[in-house]
Nucleic acid binder design. Structure first.
Lengths: 219, 219
DNA sequence: GATATTCAAATTGGATCCAATATTCAATAT
DNA sequence: ATATTGAATATTGGATCCAATTTGAATATC
């Protein structure tokens, strides 16, 4: 007799749970930049001691999501316009490469999944959902590449700019433009046109960058 | 009366010291892949408790340098040939971009410094020193770009492949070729030819990749 | 003899406690 | 009124202790 593996992820230490929760809060902007992360306070929220909290914070620091100073504690790190722009440039270099590798490997299933995210993105009216669907759409298209290191690198970069990216989507016609570009990328992938998908992805990211920088300069 | 700031970096927690030491040991290959990291053992080495050791290990894990399993502990992570190749491709995409931005911003001082590393690399006969000088040479050329995110990303990628990169240098004419390519990159930078520097950097990295993969396939 | 079971040792994850440092704010001096 | 000192408080870094889990060897079972 065989049992299905249940995966009751007992593989979840308190530190991991706290790490994920804090990361999510930072990425979604629920923790504003500059906000201090008090170990005691967080420990109480999760009914743990400060030990796993410290581990979570030190891991976040390695991702650049918080900055901590000895005996002073950690704060959520922000991004200057220059840094944000740099990260968009970084993505604009990597993601076209990833999707070019990915296109010839995409299965009909992956394409269908991507299209469903694309459609959901188009009709969603919840700004918080946009960021999520946007990432899922692109990630689904990229996954077929099998480039795990690249994918991790891009995820990490997105984690850093996600708050700003969402802010940019809310702007003027940010959503409309993003949606239009998504459709064109999706079409290119379905046609199997890797070069077009790469070029459209490049423009998609640079367009978002310009829109974001315009927004940031007005603050 | 003014005093010079002394910067007695009291800003060094035990966790940071242990992190740096373990990272160095892994990068230099003194800790072989698969080697278990026993918290107790490491704590005794540094005359500390296991708490800062755990923090160091969890930070290393975020960099992909170790893999840890709940209640089982952490081991130094290795790289398959495919993963190593992927990381070289990643570098081959990013580093040309960085040096292209960097070239027009390089100061005579930076160029002189790079050349000195280049020369030192040429005459060094210590394999362990090669990796260090190689990184310093490239880092010096890249620094002028001011692309801090890109630089961190490349450093992180290099951390993952440094052991293999050094192994590759030891091969046949690895050093001779690397040295020749370094000179050509240095020359391009001194001429202010950003495109040439970028193209040479691209070839330099892909050449190392091919050499490495040839080496790995023989194991 | 090979496989399953039990149990002690080893190891990690986390809680509690203590030390080191920073911050706050009232008391004092200029 | 402002600047400075200094103690009280808050906060972080680390040590020690306990609980949960894994590992491996000894024993039992077929």
């Amino acid at each position: 007799m065989q049992f299905k593996s249940v995966d009751i992820s007992k593989t979840a230490s308190a530190a991991s749970i706290i790490f994920d929760a804090l990361k999510k809060a930072i990425i979604e902007g629920n923790l504003e930049e500059g906000a201090p992360l008090r170990q005691d306070e967080i420990a109480k929220m999760f009914n743990t001691s400060r030990i796993p909290v410290r581990e979570a914070i030190s891991r976040l620091e390695e991702h650049g999501l918080v900055k901590s100073q000895r005996y002073k504690g950690a704060v959520v790190s922000g991004l200057s316009a220059g840094e944000a722009g740099e990260i968009f440039d970084y993505r604009a270099i990597l993601e076209p490469h990833i999707i070019r590798i990915s296109v010839p490997k995409m299965t009909p299933k992956a394409l269908a999944e991507a299209r469903s995210f694309c459609d959901a993105f188009a009709v969603s009216d919840d700004p918080m959902e946009w960021g999520d669907l946007n990432r899922k759409f692109h990630a689904t298209l990229y996954n077929a590449s099998g480039l795990t290191f690249h994918l991790e690198a891009v995820e990490s970069a997105l984690d850093r700019v996600d708050r700003y990216l969402r802010a940019q989507l809310v702007l003027s016609n940010g959503m409309a433009r993003a949606n239009d570009e998504h459709l064109r990328i999706q079409d290119a992938c379905e046609r199997g046109d890797a070069d077009a998908a790469a070029e459209l992805t490049h423009q998609h990211i640079l367009g978002a960058k310009n829109s974001l920088l315009k927004h940031l300069s007005k603050l």
